[in-house]
Design a protein around this nucleic acid. Structure first.
Lengths: 480, 480
DNA sequence: TTGTCGGCGTCGCGCCGACAA
DNA sequence: TTGTCGGCGCGACGCCGACAA
């Protein structure tokens, strides 16, 4: 509960924050320069105000469409009640808002990040039911959890972890059952209840090389229950945001923005260099592109589409670049893709994806017709998903999870460069482990493995869906 | 959960809202004129901003200290999560903010209010523990709950009630035990858990003459958990509120204020007539006054004090009348009285209290020295409390609750004129009831009683204390 | 490999009157 | 009159392997 108490190694806090935020969340660095799109910020604040009034206010406050700012500070935080993470970003408008830079600025030096082992698993109905505990996927246990003493008849240990607020959570980690599997039992249900987890939400676990353990949560949809208890009217909020920026520009002073990355994917604080890169491309009508989304079984999934129109989103913001591109998605089944995007959210279709280690193989055979999909069928997403998986030549069952190795080799997040997928060898080593039975002596290779491949990260991430209600989503119907 | 669904008889909703808000909460009526004190509004928004910046903004937005507005609309609402009630008030600044009215305007006609039976009981540790149900005080049961069929061996019925959101709550009401008493059993614990009630919070029950039943909650302290999930910076909020008012004045348009009466007692929207009355009195240094608070055992408790200083609260608001009176309270033990008040929050000491039916008898004998009170002793408040109770000449034990009749005759709320305390006769009738044993035939006088005294209301109200933490407060220590 | 289920022991909720403040 | 407690019955929680996808 206590805020500020628990962040002993600040670095771990940031690691946990990023793990919970997901691979798509991108934050500016301190001292970097960014463009701040007021329009996008206002868009995140609930119900829109009267457009006429808004137009008048924009005029009155004389705010440009995008504001060039220096990032003075970035503080990562999390909501006490919901664990929703957000960033408090301190911005300072640059003196000159007219002659905007045309050339990228020298990149800031990357601050080295601590090495952690982490996983993220979408919770099944069994995981969240009161009937039992949490089933740890074997590879997650092997790669992330502290090694068990396999000489014991039923290997057991207690995991002592902390969440973003510094609160402690203890879990009994046991390796039992026939066939043997890793489970979290005692302590798990308390966690589920306290965090109000439901099937479809995801559990995040993280362990540093020093043995520090952290846990977190990534929710299926942004619960509207984070509904910001009406303190002031929505119109006052809009005016306040406008006035803050306007005042900061005129007085060249700082102002604060609370950036909630999981509220919507729209980035309204864009790194200058990123902006310049995308404007150099110059997306236009007819051009094909691709865009990243969170995947179920992979951290990042990409969908492609075509720009079909280009123009102002609203007349109040004439000439703004905010969501000027109207797009059509290739896959008709992708119900969630936004109708309009900003140019910096997408990448050219043909350019080689920098962080995708596997070659793209568009020649996927879709063996099953999908036209009878009832409801929002998650499987309908599979063709595109498989598109970005390693091109495994064999067909496989819809719900198949039996072939593990190739799945490891895909779509590693590019957020922090330098990672490479080594999961092929990982899988082989894991296989040795799993083929060991309970009675064998402790296997030294397990801990050695951690030292060998410290930077490997396995993510199994949440799906972005439209089923906003807090009940078991349709994807889990099969388990009812 | 469903909003908007449940307010069948809108009138009952308002009754419930007011019962939960407490007797001190005063709302302006539609079409009435009020003064809106921006300074007070800003004060309620968490952490203050930089004073220098604030001063600059006040200057820039050119807002007067108080704004004369017409009340265009008042909507009563309640927070989904916490049931905290608030009012969304639509204001329209009057064209002339310079020549302010000096004479009261004709009072609006009172809209007749439906007759309801209601009670409000502070929850004991037993009420909130998982060990059992809720103990209904006898007079509450007799006056408010539907009559039981006393011919049954253990009279029982099911109460079907709704809360402010329209959600249904069912309670088993049973009359059992030795000696017999009224209890709410099945359904109660779910309510306690869902509403997150703890000892010290209060349960509100209300029944209309048509038999409609409502339940609500009045919390001990305003949980900071209503903490308004940082959506925009506090500075932006301040600017937004300022800008909204400023814009409304200039364009003579409406703006919205969310008024949260239980966040603090400070009224920053003051009826014009009330303001004029208080300014006619002209409080000044040296004058004695009294002020209303919520009491534990009585709806309203009054404390007296002396004005010791007068002046601006902050230099940013020069000449404002907001909390200009610095006061000293008569009772040194009253730790909670504010140091500064606005003139409309207090009344002259000598003027006859309009709604107090009992004569004030200041000649209370305090038989016990209080200097050894450990911690924050609730009993230390008693002298002043008794001061405003009917002057019972006999001394009594600190924790005595045995002498019931005189306590009923005090401090009835003046909020809605026309009520008079008839509890003396009530108590006598109740005595007949309670002296009946379980086996007697149904007592026809009980239902007849309800028809006789429809407007009587018994409140047992929450104490305002400093023990903010969500644990059993010190007043309950005796039960540990 | 892992999601779900039947089996079942145990714990705590919650209903009861006793008792005393 | 009513707050708290001991007694205790029952239902849900939660740990287990079986089984199958």
């Amino acid at each position: 509960m206590a805020q500020g108490a628990g962040r002993d190694p600040e670095e771990l806090f940031e690691e946990l924050w990023r793990a919970c935020a997901g691979p798509l969340v991108e934050l500016p660095q301190t001292n970097e320069r960014v463009f701040y799109f007021l329009q996008g910020h206002l868009e995140q604040l609930q119900e829109p105000t009267d457009p006429a009034l808004l137009a008048e206010q924009i005029k009155m406050f004389q705010v440009p469409n995008k504001i060039l700012c220096k990032v003075v500070n970035v503080e990562l935080k999390a909501e006490t009640e919901t664990d929703e993470m957000y960033a408090q970003i301190t911005l300072q408008p640059e003196p000159d808002q007219v002659d905007l830079p045309q050339l990228p600025e020298p990149p800031l030096q990357e601050t080295s990040r601590p090495v952690v082992h982490s996983f993220c698993k979408i919770l099944t109905p069994s995981d969240t039911s009161t009937h039992g505990g949490f089933s740890v996927l074997r590879r997650h246990a092997n790669e992330c959890l502290p090694a068990l003493d396999m000489s014991m008849p039923t290997p057991t240990q207690e995991l002592i972890t902390k969440d973003l607020h510094g609160s402690e959570w203890r879990f009994k980690h046991i390796y039992r059952g026939q066939p043997r599997r890793h489970l979290l039992t005692t302590g798990w249900s308390t966690f589920v209840t306290s965090k109000k987890l439901i099937a479809g939400d995801a559990f995040v676990y993280l362990r540093s090389e020093t043995g520090q353990q952290r846990v977190g949560v990534r929710r299926l949809v942004q619960k509207q229950s984070t509904m910001p208890a009406s303190v002031i009217s929505s119109q006052s909020m809009h005016l306040g945001v406008l006035a803050s920026a306007s005042h900061a520009i005129r007085t060249h002073s700082i102002f604060l923005v609370y950036y909630r990355p999981r509220l919507s994917q729209s980035q309204y604080i864009v790194r200058l260099n990123k902006y310049l890169e995308s404007s150099k491309i110059g997306f236009d009508v007819g051009m094909r592109f691709k865009m990243s989304f969170e995947g179920d079984d992979v951290p990042i999934k990409k969908f492609s589409g075509t720009v079909v129109d280009k123009g102002d989103l609203s007349p109040q913001w004439q000439g703004s670049e905010w969501k000027t591109l109207k797009v059509k998605w290739d896959e008709a089944t992708n119900l969630n893709g936004p109708e309009r995007v900003s140019s910096w959210e997408i990448e050219p279709f043909d350019a080689s994806a920098p962080a995708i280690t596997m070659p793209v193989q568009p020649s996927m055979k879709n063996k099953r017709p999908r036209e009878t999909a009832e409801g929002l069928d998650i499987h309908a997403l599979e063709p595109a998903q498989e598109f970005w998986l390693s091109g495994r030549p064999e067909q496989h069952e819809k719900t198949s999870v039996s072939s593990s190795e190739p799945k490891h080799q895909v779509a590693w997040t590019s957020e922090r460069a330098g990672y490479s997928a080594m999961s092929s060898s990982i899988s082989q080593k894991l296989f040795q482990v799993t083929s060991n039975d309970a009675r064998v002596p402790p296997w030294p290779g397990l801990s050695a493995y951690h030292a060998d491949e410290p930077s490997s990260k396995i993510f199994q991430c949440r799906r972005r869906g439209k089923e906003g209600a807090r009940h078991v989503p349709s994807v889990w119907r099969q388990f009812d």
